[in-house]
């Protein structure tokens, strides 16, 4: 078994963190895992994406040209990676910022207004958590509760944040239904 997903958007949207939370959860569940970021000369405001690959045996190539799933947080990232997603995968579109569809009829496309939902729970910064939650709930990439437990770990020291992020998680899960 091997699964992979690309998270993509702008720098500052917490793209790498989404992947990191998922990767930690996968490790805690006993999977082999690799988290691979894009990196470049643009430190802020450029495109950012990361790939998470999990499997039940050592991961060979962690560089994925055709991902199984995509979480697109901005329009350019949808346009770049949308056509590459393998048939049958989930494409999650952050419809707060992306007014279009992927144009694919062979994938499970889901639109989640992640920024709007995040603002309702307290901060637009939680949009990544909303989207991650919606993605996990829809794709069953990993056990949903384990991902929540892992997120609690990662935000452990900031009580105020964790409450907001839990609400963001809950809202994301609802949006995915």
């Amino acid at each position: 078994m091997q699964k992979d997903v690309i998270f993509a958007g702008f720098g500052g949207q917490g793209i790498l963190l989404m992947g990191s939370i998922l990767a930690h959860a996968a490790m805690d569940l006993g999977f082999e895992v690799a988290w691979v970021p894009s990196y470049g000369a643009e430190m802020r405001g450029g495109t950012a994406n990361c790939t998470v690959v999990i499997g039940d045996r050592p991961i060979g190539s962690p560089i994925i040209k055709n991902p199984q799933h995509l979480v697109a947080m901005t329009r350019p990232s949808l346009e770049k990676f949308g056509p590459l997603v393998k048939p049958g995968g989930v494409i999650l579109i952050n419809s707060s910022l992306i007014p279009v569809s992927s144009g694919r009829d062979d994938v499970d496309e889901i639109k989640v207004p992640a920024n709007d939902i995040a603002m309702k729970v307290g901060s637009v910064k939680a949009a990544n958590i909303v989207a991650l939650s919606a993605f996990v709930a829809r794709s069953r990439f990993l056990d949903y509760d384990m991902v929540i437990a892992c997120m609690k770990n990662q935000f452990g020291s900031k009580d105020k944040l964790i409450q907001m992020n839990l609400e963001a998680m809950e809202a994301g899960k609802k949006a995915a239904q």
Partner: peptide, 10 residues
């Protein structure tokens, strides 16, 4: 290389 350096693995 950059992959070994930038990648996270257990």
């Amino acid at each position: 290389d950059g992959l070994i350096g930038q990648m996270m693995e257990p």
